[in-house]
């Protein structure tokens, strides 16, 4: 029994579930059995969104054990900490350092963690960290592209997921899924593919 477990966290509206959908579709196309468990909760109103993807050959349940994710992806700096229990010594952690301030933090009434502290907590938990800089987000026709697709590109370029799924297959799914936004979306995805985090 061999599993490849992915845990994704972010805030509602960041496209966490789209990343999950795309990975699932690519897995199905590659004949890899997949269980995709998204938790939406209060996503529409700015709450936490998380998703668990288990690419596996055998029988597994939807929730993965703690300390054993192969890959963790965080779309927001503070929410990144919510994935800590899933980190183990073989975990790769791709952190997109986007900051989405809650109102109280904006007003200085509540704390928001510093980037260094978040990175330190992740590394202390034993994971290998790849930090993706939000400022590197490409533009298409003067507008920033969808950052979830950019992050997915960075995942495919830098993590072990590339051993299971091919970036070309994902690019194809993106192109088919949103034909009208194909050029912008592929700019995002390819931008991520070309983003070297090391």
């Amino acid at each position: 029994m061999k599993t490849y477990d992915i845990y994704i966290v972010g805030v509602g509206g960041q496209g966490v579930l789209t990343i999950g959908d795309l990975i699932s579709e690519a897995a199905v196309k590659a004949n890899i059995p997949i269980s995709f468990f998204p938790t939406k909760g209060m996503s529409q109103r700015g709450g936490l969104v998380k998703a668990q993807l288990r690419l596996c050959s055998g029988d597994v349940g939807p929730s993965m054990p703690e300390q054993s994710a192969d890959l963790v992806v965080a779309m927001e700096l503070s929410e990144a900490l919510k994935a800590l229990p899933y980190l183990g010594k073989n975990t790769e952690y791709l952190l997109y350092g986007n900051v989405w301030l809650p109102t109280a933090a904006m007003l200085g009434k509540a704390k928001y963690p510093a980037k260094e502290k978040v990175c330190a907590a992740i590394e202390k938990a034993g994971a290998k960290l790849y930090y993706v800089e939000p400022k590197a987000l490409p533009f298409y026709e003067g507008k920033p592209v969808r950052d979830n697709l950019f992050v997915l590109g960075a995942i495919m370029a830098n993590t072990g997921l590339q051993k299971l799924l091919s970036a070309e297959a994902i690019a194809e799914i993106i192109a088919q899924k949103w034909p009208k936004a194909k050029a912008a979306n592929l700019t995002a995805f390819n931008g991520g593919l070309n983003y070297g985090v090391l």
Binding site: P113, K117, A121
Partner: peptide, 22 residues
């Protein structure tokens, strides 16, 4: 230890994110 939940040290740093109206 590896089966006893996960590492939580650091989680307390996360910003509270109360849900709000759209």
């Amino acid at each position: 230890a590896v089966l006893k939940g996960g590492i939580t040290a650091g989680m307390e740093l996360a910003a509270a994110r109360p849900i709000t109206t759209c």
